[in-house]
């Protein structure tokens, strides 16, 4: 089901906005990357769906596959590093399709000439640790070294595969469904942003980067078929994840801003920088759409899990305003737009 909102033609030059996870990136995928690749047969999910991963039929089960390239500056940030990010990102994308038992990961690495061995060792220790937490491992890989200046340090690509009996899309919402978020939002994006020297901030923020397949498994066990849509609010944050779910499901969402868990320090850093925590990346969270009948059971299951203690019910689906996300601020209402382009600090 295609998102029918206006997508403009891709510009002559690819600027940074095309990597920011919003409308511009969808335009790029749709007009260039997914163009002419056809549809996936047998009820599976292909690139054109722009979901978190692809789904292919194998007999009466489903193979879920997803891939993600990771670059982050700085490579080590409070709460994690690029290695942990590379594992969590891919494991979580599988989990968002309902595939919470990853069979294995692949890991391809491009390294810049001159990169320190010690740093690679630390990053790979972190990859092993994250694999342990997710209950998976890396089974194959690829290595390239490029000349100095030809890339910035390190690029890690991971691909994950998993088999599942039932998969979950990001478009299964209907009016009356409830929306849950599995914990506080904005932690990763603002933690990484606050480490940048030019912002001159000193703050105790930590990324939430973690594989959450175990958490999602617990939710699926409690909610079963009642969990009808999932998405991990990475680039573009909660706002973009909700906008995509609303658009693809053709329902309106009403979100209670005060119910959305945000840590005080994250809120304060966001205020100072003029950046909305709802628009920045999370790397250990999920947004779930559930039937009203199972909402409490799923919420309870999430909160019992150590990674889901701050889980909260944040809103409902309505039949008005399909594709729109309405935010109740406590003062009034506004539309919650998705992130557009790079986020830049404001001047006043």
């Amino acid at each position: 089901m295609r998102d029918l909102r206006f997508l403009r033609p891709v510009d002559e030059r690819i600027t940074l906005k095309y990597g920011a996870g919003g409308r511009a990136m969808r335009a790029l995928i749709e007009q260039i990357f997914a163009d002419g690749l056809g549809e996936v047969d047998d009820g599976g999910v292909g690139l054109a769906a722009m979901d978190d991963g692809a789904v292919l039929r194998i007999g009466d089960r489903w193979l879920v596959i997803t891939t993600d390239s990771h670059v982050v500056q700085p490579r080590f940030f409070p709460g994690g590093d690029i290695g942990r990010l590379a594992v969590a990102g891919t494991v979580n994308d599988l989990a968002m399709m309902g595939a919470t038992e990853p069979l294995a990961l692949t890991c391809a690495t491009i390294v810049e000439e001159g990169f320190a061995r010690e740093e690679l060792e630390r990053i790979w220790a972190s990859i092993r640790q994250a694999c342990l937490e997710a209950g998976t491992t890396v089974v194959t890989g690829d290595t390239k070294v490029m000349g100095r200046g030809e890339l910035d340090g390190l690029v890690i690509n991971t691909t994950g595969v998993a088999i599942t009996d039932r998969f979950v899309r990001d478009n299964g919402l209907r009016p009356g469904d409830r929306l849950l978020v599995t914990g506080t939002v904005g932690d990763h994006g603002l933690a990484v942003m606050a480490t940048r020297n030019e912002l001159a901030l000193e703050v105790e923020l930590a990324s939430d980067v973690a594989p959450i397949n175990g958490l999602v498994r617990a939710a699926l066990a409690a909610g079963g078929d009642g969990i009808v849509a999932m998405k991990d609010p990475t680039r573009g944050g909660l706002a973009s994840a909700l906008a995509e779910m609303a658009g693809k499901s053709r329902v309106g969402l009403v979100i209670d801003e005060r119910a959305v868990p945000v840590k005080d320090a994250v809120r304060a850093a966001g205020e100072l920088l003029g950046i909305d925590p709802l628009l920045v990346a999370n790397e250990g969270k999920a947004v779930m759409g559930v039937r009203a009948a199972v909402a409490d059971a799923v919420l309870e299951a999430l909160r019992r899990h150590p990674l889901g203690r701050d889980a909260a019910l944040i809103g409902v689906c309505i039949d008005e305003r399909p594709g729109a996300v309405v935010l109740e601020t406590g003062f009034g209402r506004r539309l919650l737009g998705e992130a557009e382009g790079e986020l830049q600090p404001r001047i006043c």
Binding site: A194, A200, E202, V203, D264, A265, R267, A268, A269, L272
Partner: peptide, 11 residues
């Protein structure tokens, strides 16, 4: 001045 903005320290 080092200012505390609700947990965020800033110069």
């Amino acid at each position: 001045a080092i200012v505390d903005f609700w947990g965020v320290k800033k110069v």
